[in-house]
Design a protein around this nucleic acid. Structure first.
Lengths: 238, 238
DNA sequence: GCATATTTGTCCGTATGTATA
DNA sequence: CTATACATACGGACAAATATG
């Protein structure tokens, strides 16, 4: 098929196109398995502290143990699971120190993205849309959707940098933060008080005032961290 | 010629690799193997673009393919190697976009650590020591030691946060940044102009003026990134 | 504390597919 | 086009550590 000369339309150049084939379908089994497990963990099907039994997962997914173990290594490096030698692989149970770390990095990253802005960013639509989603979720008393909208908001903020690797870093932080909420008994309305602040940040960005938006966001995240740590140490199951 | 296994690994040396087998004794085999390869990459024995031949490494280190593949997954997740499906594992060749990303995160993290400081930090000794090491290296015309001292300086800065996970994050960034210098022809004296700035930052921290130190560091890193990107696109081998 | 069953850690053999000379 | 070397993935094996009764 790729070698059939009739496949080529005259006048069209495909020079170097083959180099990009790697971008199409090329993903290893281990990555695919990791993606499946990552999704299960994110949705809370696998809860923090749960052991992930090799044999059972191997039989369910129809992959070999070696492949699954490669996937475990990936997730371990993402801090979504911990691998205890000769004991197995467990969904990570974040410590308060982990929470502090996550918020520390979030503040540094998110604020550094918006602080330099002096004009309204072109792609502010996605940010505003996330806030509106949050408002609708709040009106509909949908705590889960409110949490999702909040995550979208912060991912959209970081996306302003136009740095795909920064997006990936942020996704990892938020994925880990999700574990914190899965540990808590009642995380539903945690994000409620922060929706008005999100709206104010959008307004400041639309006014081209990045520094003020960053300052507000910084305070916001400090407050959120404190509130979360209080609730976390109170609610989390040992 | 066709049967010589070394023919495949043209440019890759595994001489002395067996010496590092002593490191294989503490945690899981995969982590140990990853540590060995990480060290080899950091020191430039494996250069950016080099393929890491599975069979040869397996034979040299005396571990199974499965274990080595787990180690490769770890290194891939650290962005030190790229795994091209059915082609193999290669030491990563950073792009200019990667350099920009690394400096973006460095600026955000490092500045966020020292900006809040209002009193001289207790553990400033390690920072000052790194600067002094740099001064000695410069006097001794030792470019390699100068680079090492510079890395120590920045790691010590981040260590002020007292966050082990932040230290690990920073180590990863600097490990990847090392790849950039391994690609360049003459990175030896790149850090020279920044030693005086390091000294000034130490002075500001000793004066308890975190915000000024952070501002200086931010400018510093912007300059370094620009200079590095210029030199990188000029010097890097294709 | 002991014996047993289970699970993990690691290695090996092998079949299949892919890329390259 | 063929041949070859290599990577991918699977399955089986066994020792070691852990969990269980």
């Amino acid at each position: 098929m790729f070698n059939d000369p009739h496949e080529y339309a005259s006048g069209v150049t495909v020079d170097g196109l083959a180099d990009d084939r790697a971008l199409l379908t090329q993903t290893s089994r281990a990555e695919q398995v990791a993606a499946v497990l990552r999704a299960r963990i994110a949705k809370g099907f696998f809860r923090p502290g749960d052991r992930l039994p090799e044999q059972e997962i191997v039989e369910t997914l129809g992959v070999s143990r070696n492949t699954l173990r490669e996937a475990f290594r990936l997730l371990g490096h993402e801090n979504l699971v911990v691998q205890e030698l000769n004991r197995g692989t467990f969904v990570r149970v974040p410590t308060p120190a982990d929470v502090a770390h996550l918020y520390r990095v979030r503040r540094a990253i998110e604020c550094s993205v918006i602080a330099p802005l002096t004009t309204p960013p072109a792609s502010i639509g996605r940010i505003a849309a996330a806030v509106e989603d949050g408002r609708r979720a709040l009106d509909a008393q949908d705590g889960l959707a409110l949490g999702t909208a909040n995550i979208d908001f912060h991912e959209a903020l970081v996306a302003l940098a136009g740095d795909p690797r920064l997006d990936a870093l942020m996704r990892g932080l938020l994925a880990e933060l999700r574990l914190v909420f899965h540990v808590m008994d009642n995380p539903r309305w945690f994000h409620e008080p922060y929706l008005p602040r999100n709206e104010k940040i959008v307004a400041m960005l639309e006014a081209g005032d990045g520094p003020s938006a960053a300052a507000l966001l910084d305070n916001y995240l400090v407050d959120a961290e404190r509130q979360l740590l209080e609730a976390y140490s109170r609610e989390r199951r040992p």
